[in-house]
Structure formats: structure tokens, C-alpha cells
């Protein structure tokens, strides 16, 4: 009886943790997209030969993004702790994890935007220019809409990476499924809990991926090649 109760209490914990994971991923993904997309667009259009060539800015943005991407997430977590504390008020817990997660995902999103926009046919951009489209019109009416299916797939990939990162953030008290897996599954030798959290993580990733695939396919308007 007591074992059953303990288990149902644990189930509740796992449920809460799943909610925390979703919350961390959704919010940090939102922030990463809000910052990463404009950054990626700026990176692309500032390329020499593109619609707003600014070679210096392009080089600077590129190296900032590379720096961001080369710092391992665990190290970023600790590096950002003081800043997180200032910005969010806490440096640990679910809320504290969102800021470093977003920071880690921003350069990733920016690069995804870059590759998605680079795949577009330059002829289409030229056609828009020949119609007198301004750079802003080209961004909002050509670049982003035409790259939309590729961007959806890129955001899906980012979300999946964030699920993994959020589990890592759990290790330093970030809450979520990673936290449960380590505290109950690993430290208290509850293999059943460990297994359950892993299964939930797998299911989350699967759902995210198939949802992303479906949305991207719908956005590609029946074209066989998505790009």
C-alpha cells in the first residue's frame, strides 16, 4: 500500500517534471526564434552580393555566432549563472534554466536561418528587386515565406536539441525530466524511474519531429523537394 502511494506520488512528480520540461523548451525556443531569426536574416543579407551587403557586420556576426556555438552547453550554464541571476532573479530552477537554454539556441537558430535562406534561388530575389521591392519587403515577402518549410524543420531540430539540453540543465537543479532522472533514477537506483523518464523524452522527441515534418510538408505546397 505504502509502496503504491509512493509510486503515485512519484508519478505526480514525473508529470510535473514533464510539464517543466515542456515549459523550458517552449519558452527558450520562443526566445531563440525571436532573437535568432533576425540575427540569421541580418547575417544573410549582409553577405557581399546580397541585398544589403555589409562585409564588416557580416564577419562580426559570423564570429559571434561561431563563438556561441563552440561553447559546450554545460559550461555555458555555469558561465551564465551570474547574468541569469541578474536578469531572472534566480540562477537555478526551471526559470533559471530558460535563459541559458535560449542563449545556447540563438546561434543555432541563426545558422539554421542562414542555411535555409542560402538555399533559395537568387533569381527570385533578383526578380523582386526588378519589381522595386525594398530590402524589408524582400525579407518579409520573399526570403522568409519561401524558406518557411525549411525553417519549420530547423525550428523542430532546435526544439529537439533543447529537450536534450533541458535535461542537462536539470542536472544543476533546473527541474524537469532530467532532474527527476538524476535525483530519483540515478542517485536512488530507481531504474524504473530512469526508464520512464527516458521513454517520456523519446516520446516528446518523436511527437515534436512528426509534428514538424507534417507542418513543413503542408507549408511546402505539394512540392516534392522541401527547401
Amino acid at each position: 500500500m505504502s509502496k503504491l502511494l509512493a509510486d503515485s506520488a512519484l508519478q505526480n512528480l514525473i508529470l510535473t517534471a514533464t510539464g517543466q520540461t515542456l515549459y523550458m523548451v517552449a519558452l527558450s525556443l520562443g526566445i531563440a526564434i525571436a532573437v535568432g531569426v533576425p540575427t540569421g536574416v541580418l547575417l544573410v543579407i549582409s553577405t557581399p552580393g546580397h541585398i544589403l551587403p555589409r562585409p564588416r557586420l557580416h564577419a562580426i556576426l559570423g564570429s559571434i555566432i561561431n563563438t556561441g556555438r563552440s561553447i559546450p552547453f554545460v559550461i555555458l550554464l555555469f558561465l551564465l549563472m551570474p547574468l541569469t541571476k541578474v536578469l531572472v532573479g534566480v540562477s537555478i530552477g526551471t526559470k533559471g534554466a530558460i535563459f541559458p537554454l535560449a542563449v545556447a539556441a540563438i546561434p543555432f537558430v541563426a545558422r539554421i536561418v542562414e542555411t535555409s535562406l542560402q538555399e533559395l534561388d537568387p533569381g527570385v530575389i533578383e526578380a523582386a528587386q526588378s519589381m522595386g521591392a525594398s530590402p524589408l519587403q524582400i525579407i518579409t515577402k520573399v526570403l522568409l515565406p519561401e524558406a518557411w518549410p525549411a525553417l519549420i524543420l530547423g525550428f523542430t531540430l532546435t526544439a529537439i536539441n533543447l529537450v536534450g539540453y533541458s535535461a542537462m540543465a536539470g542536472a544543476i537543479g533546473g527541474g524537469g525530466l532530467g532532474d527527476i532522472a538524476i535525483r530519483y533514477g540515478y542517485q536512488r537506483f530507481r531504474n524504473d524511474v530512469l526508464l520512464e523518464t527516458v521513454v517520456i523524452l523519446i516520446i516528446l522527441v518523436q511527437i515534436t519531429q512528426s509534428l514538424g515534418n507534417k507542418l513543413a510538408l503542408r507549408a511546402s505546397r505539394g512540392q516534392r523537394r522541401i527547401n
Binding site: 527570385v124 533578383e126 526578380a127 526588378s130 519589381m131 522595386g132 521591392a133 520573399v142 515565406p145
Partner: peptide, 23 residues
């Protein structure tokens, strides 16, 4: 730039590979 945009609206252009918006 604004005047050039307006001038370009009065000059149509067609291309070898059509350059249509795919989506």
C-alpha cells in the same frame, strides 16, 4: 532608392528560369 524602386515598377523584367515564388 525610393525613386529607383518607383522607376523599376515601370520596367517589367522576365527571366530565363522564370524566377517565380515557389510557394
Amino acid at each position: 532608392p525610393r525613386e529607383l524602386a518607383r522607376a523599376r515598377q515601370q520596367i517589367g523584367m522576365i527571366f530565363q528560369h522564370f524566377n517565380l515564388l515557389k510557394l
